[in-house]
Amino acid sequence: MEPFTRHEGVTAALLRANIDTDTIIPSREMKRVSRHGLADGLFADWRYLDPANREPDPGFVLNTPAYRGASILLAGANFGCGSSREHAVWALREYGFRAVLAPSFGTIFARNCIANGVVPVVLEARVIEQLAGQVAPDPQHRRLAIDIETLCVTDPEGGRHPFALDAASRETLLSGLDPIDLTLRMGDEIERFEAQDRLTRPWAYLAD
């Protein structure tokens, strides 16, 4: 995974609350057993007048030329609720998004973001609305910047908005290291735990 230290980009806003993962990537857009080829299906029900023939809905924010190349998304509360499908994050990432800023996130979605180098930034609804207002007049030039070293969002007027991220997630993003590799290095500890646990919970270990 590509390390994430700082990212500056065009910011689009979808300020509805409860945008669920079925909306981010509808079921029928998950066409193959693959993490790829999903960007086209991102927000398909909103993005296209007719999702079948892919005619873009000119009214949808990401179809507006002013938001071309958007890589930061401002969203309403509980973004990414619902289905655990990691495809929602894969689709956002493949489309080009590196960060989503919202007052709150679906738990599984937020964890999936970290696993794929997308930052789920929690900021108060008031701040999200303020940022949306600031970028709107000229999205291509009035950009937001997200810094993972300092855990801070910088708005186009230079205002700074600190956010919280747990240390492990921050480390994963900064290093770009695969958590599976990190955990595999703890093999001895896992084995010691198992040996002890088998004595107290023998029924939890199935025979072949």
Binding site: S84, E86, R111, N112, A115, D166, I180, T183, I190, E194
Partner: peptide, 19 residues
């Protein structure tokens, strides 16, 4: 519920990193 990447983590290591 977890994502597919965490499912790989759980299968490969028998563990998850969690708060």
């Amino acid at each position: 519920g977890i994502g597919s990447t965490e499912a790989e983590h759980a299968m490969a290591t028998g563990t998850l990193r969690l708060r």
